[in-house]
């Protein structure tokens, strides 16, 4: 309840900021209401909002799982890129698979690829003590270069002028769910199921208990017999897998191909998503919806306004992170 209250206040502040911004930029306030309508109030808008929610659930979970174990995964962005390219590669080698095997296998392949990229920072941390924040960030740059290379050369669509891969075989194309003409697909349901699974893993199993112990007090974990290096590796690989799943939503469900720069920073937004939900897996479903709306909203705002670019979502995101993470501070101030 308290959390809901503080999030509402944070939202209110961001909205106020936005209105002021629009005002000072000389925009028509109609743009705001049009954008809001196209985010929530019509089927088309809501469909897109849900479509943008899915990847954030995955990256939010990826970040949150690491958080619970006291680790920072700022590498979801790189992990999800590998997940995407892995689906493309897999579909090229097995173009004739029927949907009932192609789709589930694509999920597995995407998760595996993300997991392998997550293995690296986990290994560096576990074996060499290298701080995961810097390695994951640097690995993002490496992943971006490598995947761009793969898109531009081996997997390039020869018929297209832009940097994108060929279209996936028919068996790999997911149908839209509930909202016709929008790309919402079964990934959303999988994402929600995964969130519940992560909840169970963290709070109901002994493995999750060990992870949380590690996050609260690494020394206590060591003395209770938990092998930190092993667990660090495991956590990073699971987190990587979660991030890798992001690709399924866009590649299988929407574009049916991989376009250079397809992620507008899902991995980084995942940090905000996790933070807003206080790392609670179920809460992440809702905070993903919030940030998914923001994503869709800023796209619509760019469309309806004269001069606002869609990066306004980043600013609102930053404001939300700042407000939520300083919640205790404002409360202390009020008590004084």
């Amino acid at each position: 309840m308290k959390q809901l209250f503080s999030v509402s206040i944070a939202l209110l502040v961001s909205l106020t900021f936005l209105v002021l911004l629009l005002f000072f930029m000389g925009e028509d306030l109609n743009a705001l209401s049009e954008a809001l309508q196209h985010t929530f109030l019509n089927r088309f808008g809501l469909g897109y909002t849900l479509f943008y929610t899915t990847p954030l659930i995955f990256t939010g979970l990826s970040v949150a799982l690491c958080f619970h174990a006291g680790l920072f995964n700022i590498g979801a962005e790189g992990q999800l890129l590998w997940g995407a390219i892995a689906i493309v590669a897999f579909s090229r080698y097995f173009p004739n698979l029927p949907p009932w095997s192609a789709i589930p296998l694509s999920f597995v392949v995407a998760a595996l690829a993300g997991s392998l990229w997550g293995f690296l920072p986990g290994y560096f941390k576990a074996k060499r003590g290298t701080h995961e924040v810097i390695t994951t960030i640097l690995l993002n740059f490496i992943a971006l270069s490598c995947v761009n290379y793969l898109i531009l050369y081996p997997f390039k669509n020869p018929e297209s002028q832009s940097a994108e891969t060929s279209v996936l075989p028919a068996g790999y194309q997911l149908q839209t769910l509930w909202f016709p003409t929008t790309p919402v697909n079964v990934s959303l349901i999988i994402a929600i199921a995964v969130a519940i699974a992560v909840y169970v893993l963290l709070f109901r199993t002994s493995f999750g208990f060990e992870l949380r112990t590690m996050g609260q007090s690494p020394r206590a974990a060591v003395f209770s017999g938990v092998l930190l290096s092993q667990r660090t590796l495991a956590v990073f690989m699971i987190s990587g897998a979660l991030a890798g799943l992001v690709a399924t939503n866009d590649i299988l469900g929407n574009e049916h191909k991989l376009i250079e720069g397809f992620s507008p920073g899902y991995g980084f937004t995942g940090i905000a998503v996790a933070l807003l939900a206080r790392n609670h897996p179920i809460g992440i479903i809702f905070s993903s919806f919030l940030f998914g709306s923001l994503q869709n909203f800023s796209r619509e705002l760019e469309f309806f306004s004269q001069n606002i670019s869609k990066e306004v979502s980043l600013i609102l995101q930053a404001i939300l992170i700042i407000l939520v993470s300083t919640r205790d501070f404002w409360q202390r101030r009020r008590l004084k």
């Binding site: 208990f209 060990e210 609260q216 007090s217 020394r219 206590a220 209770s224």
Partner: peptide, 26 residues
């Protein structure tokens, strides 16, 4: 084992007493 620093090594202060009883025996 009773580790040197009970607050950092023996117990997890934010966990409940019950969870702390399981620590090491999970």
């Amino acid at each position: 084992l009773i580790p040197p620093d009970r607050q950092k090594e023996g117990l997890v202060l934010n966990f409940s007493s019950a969870d702390n009883f399981v620590l090491g025996h999970q």
